[in-house]
Design a protein around this nucleic acid. Structure first.
Lengths: 343, 343
DNA sequence: TATATTTGTTCCAACGTTTGAACAAAAATA
DNA sequence: TATTTTTGTTCAAACGTTGGAACAAATATA
């Protein structure tokens, strides 16, 4: 019994002998429509299994109730959790989301933006790809006049709303934690300097090292793509030094995992020989051996705030220029990989 | 310079003093439109930064070029990789995808289906939630007359296209591998029996055990939700047995990870005291200590085939009833957790 | 030269919904 | 009873694009 032809508002109108516009108004609970008509319409709609044609109403109303989300990848707990919470907030308000992944590629990100604009989304919530340096495509979103909200990887001079954590302070905190554990020669495998958040982490590291008058060695500060593979490589590089570090702070958990693998393979005791701290608090940090210290980025809260910011922007059509910069306090989770002194 | 008003086909028509329909035809490379007009239109379109209104064309053409994807969650490598490959194939054909997650909840899955139907997707590719027993919402998709393609968790009697792996044989293979390694008492932490793929794995396990005349003990066959947490619990349960197993085959990697944690915490040697095999070949299986044997499910190929199946269904509007059941051969990846005998 | 064909365009209706204006009928007020 | 207000509905246009039919002009064929 394949119901090929979809039922429209018109079909309902015909059954009841009224006008399509009356049906539309009934369905939208228009005050001028009688209760009798409303309930009749609802009844028939149910009987005919009526599903409103979203395309038509979006076209007419000039808004799609769709929000685009762009993330570097979905298979990390952080992004997946952010998305989940964006969805939770937006669904309540009748919005649905379209998720796209850039796979850390600038080109893919641009094509994602085109896709989303093409789909007539009402706004875009994004975290930028590692590769992204040019912001032209993000400017394009802005020029369309739809809200753009960035989170995590996205702090920059675009002059748009942003939700993230206090990277500088977190970084500072990590270094001081390692110093407290007695480490004297602390290395940092950081992300790309051109990305604001990673740059902030680097600055936090540098300033903390300086503050405690530890050696600020060029060899100890390495830029990385922060993949597991690159973490392995950069750790290997550190092990090759004449003067090895006694602690390594990696700006991302996946790269920290790679580093840990290398250390384990070399039978270097973590944390006794070299202490290790990651960033992001991915679930696997609690699963590896030894468990990996990391920083909780409050993914759920970031997602929630991003969605709320979008809703706020949508509700005030006036170009209210007060920017929303929400910076959350991150939390250092100390695990075995950096617990040297008993507390 | 916020370009509030979007440029339409009409604007281009006005500039050139021609008709909107001529512009539309020019943009769609209609054979009857002169090259001169075409290039002029293209030029003006570029100048005015014209973006076609997808909503309008989808409404008119009766197809949205959107495909819905439903997965239990995106933060596993398997699903993330399937999605990536679905996208790769479909993008080439001008389709875009909307990703939704059910979080293993039947209710969420239903609401996802409603969302997707509401968005007028041209088809749905899905892997079912653990919880799902009733198939009414999937019937709803079918009754709308749009293609439904299931993969992995989705083999059932819905009579729709399906792409998966040979679970029964894979399971058989795992048990025989463990027997080859000298194991005599093999336990199975399986998924929910009501899900076809997990049931197949259970059957594969049982048959292999019977075939080799090993003890088929009720205590050794446990049903689980296959989360990391539940894996811990079920492993603890197995350790409490008077007669412990010497091998455990877990039907999912995340649960296997939980099991491994418990074994490590109890200082039980893996694989010497108890060998362990997971399922899914998630990246972390190669990262934990000891590395975890698992089964590669060919996620990329599954994604590709799912997308191709969709395209085929769309291209043959006739109700061609020959069902597409693609069953791929899975591959056992033997790692330290089950390598007892040197090869 | 008359007719047939091709070419390039316009015209118009349609996709399904929404919305303000218009309007008749019913109810409230004078 | 005459007038105003309220109520419930219809009317008509619109959102932006598409595609078949119609049509005039240019070109090819008889």
């Amino acid at each position: 019994m394949a119901n090929k032809k979809k039922t429209t508002i018109k079909d309902i109108a015909n059954v009841l002998g009224i006008t399509p516009s009356a049906v539309s108004k009934a369905l939208n609970d228009h005050p001028r429509i009688s209760e009798k008509t409303k309930s009749a319409v609802l009844q028939i709609a149910r009987n005919l299994d009526y599903q409103p044609n979203h395309l038509a109403s979006a076209l007419r109303k000039g808004k799609s109730n769709l929000v685009g989300v762009i993330v570097p990848r979905t298979n990390s707990h952080f992004f997946s959790s952010v998305i989940e919470n964006i969805e939770k907030v937006l669904n309540k308000e009748g919005y649905h989301i379209i998720i796209t992944q850039s796979n850390e590629s600038y080109k893919k990100e641009c094509s994602n933006i085109d896709t989303l604009l093409f789909t007539q989304v009402d706004g875009i919530i994004a975290s930028m790809a590692n590769e992204t340096v040019k912001l032209d495509y993000f400017e394009k979103i802005k020029s369309k006049g739809i809200p753009l909200i960035l989170f995590d990887r996205g702090e920059n001079d675009l002059n748009v709303d942003y939700i993230g954590i206090n990277d500088y302070e977190s970084s500072h905190m990590i270094v001081e934690h390692l110093i407290n554990q007695g480490c004297k020669r602390i290395a940092h495998i950081g992300g790309y300097k051109h990305t604001r958040i990673f740059n902030n982490r680097i600055r936090g590291y540098v300033d903390a090292i300086k503050k405690h008058e530890l050696p600020l060695d060029n060899e100890l500060l390495i830029e990385s793509s922060l993949t597991t593979e690159d973490g392995r490589e950069k750790m290997t590089q550190l092990l090759a030094l004449k003067n090895r570090p006694d602690a390594v702070y990696v700006a991302g958990d996946y790269a920290a995992l790679g580093a840990l693998q290398v250390l384990n393979e070399h039978h270097i005791s973590v944390p006794l020989d070299i202490a290790l701290v990651g960033f992001g608090n991915e679930p696997f940090t609690a699963m590896v051996t030894p468990t990996l210290s990391s920083v909780n980025q409050h993914s759920a809260e970031i997602g929630k705030q991003a969605a709320l910011t979008f809703l706020e922007r949508i509700k005030t059509p006036t170009v209210k220029q007060s920017l929303n910069k929400i910076i959350l306090d991150a939390e250092l989770i100390v695990r075995s990989s950096s617990r040297i002194k008993e507390t």
